[in-house]
């Protein structure tokens, strides 16, 4: 395989692992559930997508499957974070430092239909 493709894949491999490490570090250190969602989002979006780009470059016959998985991961990650955040908010998990809480009074009205 050409040297250029391998070096690009190596770069994406290292970048993906770096993002996963940062995400896991954030997951362990951040104060409460809501801020921790940033970290888990980063891992599942940047970490896996960069690894997949490296996989597309390295493994044979994996171009279209890799693109499909990249598309699916990029589609799934935000909605998972949203589902987790709304579950956390509805079960009343406190925020570490509340700057603004726009949803405070409104949730009860929308609770019946939701």
């Amino acid at each position: 395989m050409t040297l250029i493709a391998q070096s690009i894949a190596l770069f994406f491999l290292v970048a993906g692992t770096a993002f996963s490490l940062i995400g896991i570090f954030g997951f362990l250190r951040l104060p409460d559930v809501y801020t921790r969602l940033h970290a888990s989002g980063k891992v599942s979006v940047f970490g896996v997508v960069f690894l997949l780009i490296a996989a597309i470059l390295l493994t044979p016959l994996s171009a279209w499957k890799g693109l499909l998985l990249i598309f699916f991961v990029l589609l799934a990650a935000p909605s998972v974070s949203h589902a987790l955040a709304s579950a956390a908010y509805k079960t009343g998990i406190p925020m570490a430092r509340v700057e603004r809480d726009d949803l405070k009074g409104k949730l009860e009205k929308s609770g019946e239909e939701g």
Binding site: G16, S20, G23, I24, F27, S40, S44, V48, L51, L84
Partner: peptide, 16 residues
């Protein structure tokens, strides 16, 4: 919810 987020993270790592 923190536990559920950890599970989601673990499955993403398994995917990686």
């Amino acid at each position: 919810v923190a536990r559920l987020m950890g599970l989601d993270l673990a499955s993403t790592l398994t995917l990686a």
